[in-house]
């Protein structure tokens, strides 16, 4: 009931303005992210379905237990680093968006730069992890890891889902980094200054936070649960 009262008071739907109170591009970014959420949701739910239908599944703590230069036997450590890198880069992106809102060009440049560095650091970590797992014999269609109960795994579902889903997420991070680099170039060349607003940074920011959001789910589903 309160919804309709608010809507009539504000006359959101009587025309002449966006009923969502945001510009077109931002609304469409939201719809894109919603559809992307369904794509990732479908991936993760199919992973869950197959895992629920299997008798055995590898233990993440035995699979993901290595850290560069520190050797193995360290479960959760490397993925914690990756998670914190992504959270920090999300925070710098919030600060870049905020600086853009207040039209402080120098701060936008600074924070976008750090966001890009964070994204590249995350991708490097992922590249290391994929290389390491590949050396252990894991790839699409090949799973060297035994099930958690000690029996040999007879399917390659675990590797297939791991590489497909983290790969799809990594591709999102990669495109996010590219978008952020474009935003940085546009800021440096004064495009937004001329335009009079930095709304484009907000849309890039939404995409970047979504990438962080998806990682929250991927991280939990593959490494913790």
């Amino acid at each position: 009931m309160s919804t309709t009262t608010v809507a009539t008071d504000q006359k959101w739907w009587s025309g002449g303005r966006s009923p969502f109170n945001v510009e077109y591009g931002k609304l469409m970014m939201w719809y894109f992210l919603m559809s992307d959420a369904f794509t990732f949701g479908a991936f993760l739910i199919s992973y869950g379905t197959i895992r629920f239908s299997s008798n055995g599944w590898p233990d993440a703590n035995h699979v993901f237990q290595s850290f560069p230069f520190l050797g193995s036997g360290l479960p959760l450590l490397f993925v914690s680093l990756m998670t914190f890198i992504l959270i920090v880069s999300s925070v710098t992106m919030v600060l870049a968006v905020k600086a853009g809102h207040e039209r402080r060009k120098a701060d936008v440049v600074k924070y976008l730069f750090w966001t890009i560095i964070g994204g590249i650091a995350f991708l490097s970590c992922q590249a290391w992890e994929w290389t390491h797992l590949h050396h252990e014999g894991a790839w699409w269609g090949s799973n060297p890891f035994p099930n958690a109960d000690g029996s040999l795994s007879t399917t390659t579902n675990f590797s297939n889902f791991f590489f497909t889903i983290t790969g799809f997420h990594g591709f999102h991070v990669f495109s996010g980094v590219i978008i952020n680099i474009i935003m940085l170039i546009m800021t440096l060349t004064g495009v937004f200054e001329k335009r009079g607003h930095y709304l484009m940074i907000e849309k890039a920011g939404l995409y970047w936070h979504f990438v962080d959001l998806v990682w929250v789910f991927v991280f939990t589903c593959f490494y913790l649960v």
Partner: peptide
């Protein structure tokens, strides 16, 4: 069905198998 659960339930077997990739 995949040969999942009942075969080796002793924890030593788990350790042995887990070491294999290394």
């Amino acid at each position: 069905n995949e040969k999942g659960q009942p075969h080796q339930m002793n924890p030593n077997a788990v350790e042995e198998k887990a070491e294999k990739p290394k």
